[in-house]
Design a protein around this nucleic acid. Structure first.
Lengths: 159, 159
DNA sequence: ACTCTGTCGTTCAAATTCGAACGAAGGTGT
DNA sequence: ACACCTTCGTTCGAATTTGAACGACAGAGT
């Protein structure tokens, strides 16, 4: 194995900051959502993704791709949310194997109730701690990172 | 409840990028470490933190604070790593309740073996995708975020 | 000395996550 | 029609994470 290119000070600071912030922000968010809305962050993200879809429903695989989770993990969460009445399964007309997850009225209600507190926390733990310039750079940089990693996953899987 | 201040386009982009990148990077890292070194990211971080400590050992609580994990989670991981021979528990002389986790020779060996591949992946999934200017902003911004959240945790817990 | 409060690390049950394997069905080429 | 390969969502077992409760001890105040 070749000599690895170790991280210099600047790179190390960026990496440590990224990892630490990831974990800390995730933890805070998890607590706030569980506390104020009885939801996990995963469940909240499911509500958000479904609410953003044209008719409030998405195919399971499609949904699993948008969240960053495994298919089996999504099956589990959707089952939980179905029990709670936030989501309903609907079979796909054009493909017998396919399953749609669809937002129920209760799901919409829960999402509307949870959103304000969630946004406030997002501001508190990240957005309002940064300057507009920092936000711009963050959005561009990490947006690019996300797209590349998503593309890499598709490239490796879809072969 | 007051009118929430929703996120504008710039803020939303930063938030979405941050969350997506967090999850995607975490997943990649987890796979690479498991594949090439048989370690979880948590375990790797334990090795790193211990190796950075003055005498290769840290108190359990201290270690749990540096990683972002619960005390019980750390107990579990240290037990696993102790079975694997990477770490050893040592009781604290000045405090009977206290327990030190200490890196063994095997632990050092595993860390040295895993480090190059880990750094290469860190470059591949984040560092090398960003410009030096972006890295600077990321380090400063997320470093500040981390410090604030750590301070908030201590403030809430240590009251 | 003695009580009171907080801290230390562990144990426990519950929840969540993942990957591999699975049955079923789609889609393609022959 | 027929194999062949892929995709779909689920099921299963194993691993991990968490918070609450616990027993043991430290430290401060009286």
């Amino acid at each position: 194995m070749d000599e690895p290119r170790w991280l210099d000070e600047r790179e190390m600071a960026a990496w440590r900051g990224f990892v630490a912030a990831s974990n800390l922000v995730a933890r805070r968010l998890e607590h706030q959502l569980k506390e104020n809305a009885g939801l996990s962050h995963t469940q909240y993200e499911i509500l958000v993704q479904l609410s953003a879809a044209p008719d409030g429903s998405l195919r399971m695989t499609d949904l699993a791709d948008r969240l960053v989770t495994s298919k089996s993990g999504l099956t589990y969460q959707v089952t939980q949310m179905e029990k709670a009445g936030m989501v309903r399964r609907r079979s796909c007309p054009s493909d017998v194997r396919g399953v749609f997850a669809e937002l129920t009225d209760e799901g919409w209600r829960v999402l509307r109730a949870a959103a304000p507190g969630h946004v406030a926390t997002v501001r508190e733990v990240l957005i309002d701690l940064l300057t507009p310039e920092q936000l711009t750079v963050l959005g561009e940089g990490l947006g690019e990172v996300s797209e590349r990693l998503r593309a890499a996953e598709r490239g490796a899987a879809g072969r």
